[in-house]
Design a protein around this nucleic acid. Structure first.
Lengths: 332, 332
DNA sequence: TTGAAAGCGCTAACAT
DNA sequence: ATGTTAGCGCTTTCAA
């Protein structure tokens, strides 16, 4: 049924190798022959099989994008940017939700390999050694997003998490807040760690102490923030501000506080992280991560690698930015 | 480098066909042989190449999911559900954003075909004839989501759009609203058409006239709603309520109204459509589309087809539900 | 510049 | 129950 290279060869009176050459833009084809063959291709609407081509090359033009959860608007934006770029370059992208679970992530990497995907972009949930070991067994380039791995042996694109935390902390301090609670991201994540350090460091600079008890780790989902609301009101009711590991949790927290009759920012100032597209709607003060640039850079670097670039591994770091909206207020 | 079926065959002293048989769970393999071979497979960590298998079968275990825009939370939820189901069944999914553009959509369908994907799930943006023609040329099953095509020749899963519009209209009428404006979805979309008809029909039943001029078509994006705000305040300022084609536009509209110093619901009642996950956050009254059931059903039906089911085409319709929140208020 | 032939890794008749 | 063989649709040496 399917039109194959042989059909084109027969109809245009050349061998299939010649057809293959015009298909792949090989230089040594007589212009006339090329034209003839192309005409037949167009007339029959022939399109080469990616699978057959893939078998020869050992790779298929598909990229796996491994993220936490597509329902998180930040990832949706990122996905969109990456997809748009790679589609244009002739790659399809398979989106994989790890749910921040190293096991799922590992499974997806393995899958990408057995499917013969051409590349992987991932925001890893994994700890160092396991991932590094696995990366060595993979037959395609991998670009890491926003999670740092010491002794990294792959390209790495990120937003400066330390500075992000620092900006958030400084903002709250400048507004006069001294009693703070923190709903951080996943423990053991370098992003969480770096943001926390940046945040804590400004507090040290201002000689303000933060009780370690007031640092709680969430799962980056809405309900994590929502549930933190109860804790906040029971245990840390003297707090005047909360720094959240992402916007989704911040929004969940605000919702819970509202339900308990508390107001933001009058009763609590809240700072989020990501600047996802809900943040402007709910007027959330947050740290903007340039998702557009992030995605673009990741896609570009991966593309380069897939095209055979063998140079040293890159490390590209973007700057975060504080976006002040109406969820924070001055105490002074 | 790669471990192939031949390596397994050699190491376990059988032919590669036998190995292939244990791989595919073919019944006629001696239990002992099977065990031996499996042991070697496990020991070497061998995983068959999907591409090679694909070349033989003419299909690869990947599904294309064609949606409007992954940044729309409704699609993100849907995508998530479908992906989760199909991943479990051994399929990967490629997400394609059509941007509601028939040309892009057509390109993606074509791409799915040349990549040898096993199936397609789509929320089509296309008009009837073009799509129907293209569907005939495609070598894999297609499931249509939420857009009706007359003389449909494929499986079709939807939420009853007419009833959705009806519920929205009835709600506003019951609250006493008589001066309404409508920011509908894309023109020429059956979803838009059906919702509009349901909405207009209740108004007829109540003997309330709606000026056709007050029906505007948007693009389902946030800014479409935002821009409609200006129009509303300039041209239709006597309106007391607006029915929007989706939540994203409703949220954009509310934002614009707030910026112009108007309040929702005090100055305008707004009804959205989808019940996406921002809707509860902004307290939007809306029509719930059961995305979970929708995605689940689509994935199930497609799976059945991919597994060879040849029965008559199915048509599954779910019921929408009115969710009343704080963006609508009684005039009485 | 072109064609013949081998081979990518697997499955599926067909034989035994 | 197992092995032999052909072939899926393409690319790529190697020769001519």
């Amino acid at each position: 049924m399917r039109i194959t290279i042989k059909d084109i060869a027969r109809k245009s009176g050349v061998s299939s190798s010649t057809v293959s050459r015009v298909l792949t833009n090989h230089p040594s084809v007589d212009p006339k022959t090329r034209e003839e063959v192309q005409k037949v291709i167009d007339r029959l609407g022939y399109r080469p099989s990616h699978i057959a081509r893939g078998l020869v090359k050992g790779k298929i033009d598909i990229v796996a994008l491994i993220i936490g959860d597509i329902r998180n608007p930040f990832y949706a934006e990122l996905t969109r940017t990456i997809k748009e770029f790679l589609n244009k370059e002739g790659y399809m992208v398979v989106v994989c939700d790890s749910d921040y679970d190293p096991d799922k992530e590992e499974a997806y990497i393995r899958t990408a390999d057995v499917y013969g995907f051409a590349g992987i972009i991932m925001i890893t949930a994994m700890e160092t050694e396991t991932l590094l070991k696995q990366l060595k067994t993979i037959n395609c380039p991998v670009v890491l997003l926003n999670r740092y791995l010491p002794s990294i042996e792959t390209d790495f694109i990120s937003v400066d998490n330390y500075t992000g935390g620092y900006l958030a902390g400084k903002h709250l301090l400048d507004l006069g807040h001294r009693n703070i609670a923190i709903l951080a991201g996943h423990k053991n994540s370098s992003a969480t760690y770096d943001r926390l350090n940046g945040f804590l460091d400004v507090f040290k600079q201002y000689n303000v102490n933060i009780d370690k008890e007031r640092i709680v780790y969430g799962n980056l989902q809405w309900d994590s923030g929502y549930n933190f609301g109860k804790l906040l009101l029971n245990q840390y009711k003297d707090a005047t501000a909360v720094f959240c590991g992402n916007d989704l949790m911040a929004i969940g927290l605000i919702e819970a506080l509202n339900e308990y009759g508390k107001r933001v920012p009058e009763d609590f100032s809240i700072v989020g992280y990501d600047n996802n597209n809900i943040a402007p709607i709910v007027k959330l003060t947050t740290i903007h991560q340039p998702h557009l640039e992030l995605g673009q850079a990741a896609a570009e670097v991966l593309l380069e690698r897939m095209r055979g670039y063998k140079g040293a591994y890159k490390r590209i770091i973007f700057n975060p930015k504080l976006i002040v909206r109406k969820s924070t207020v001055s105490l002074i």
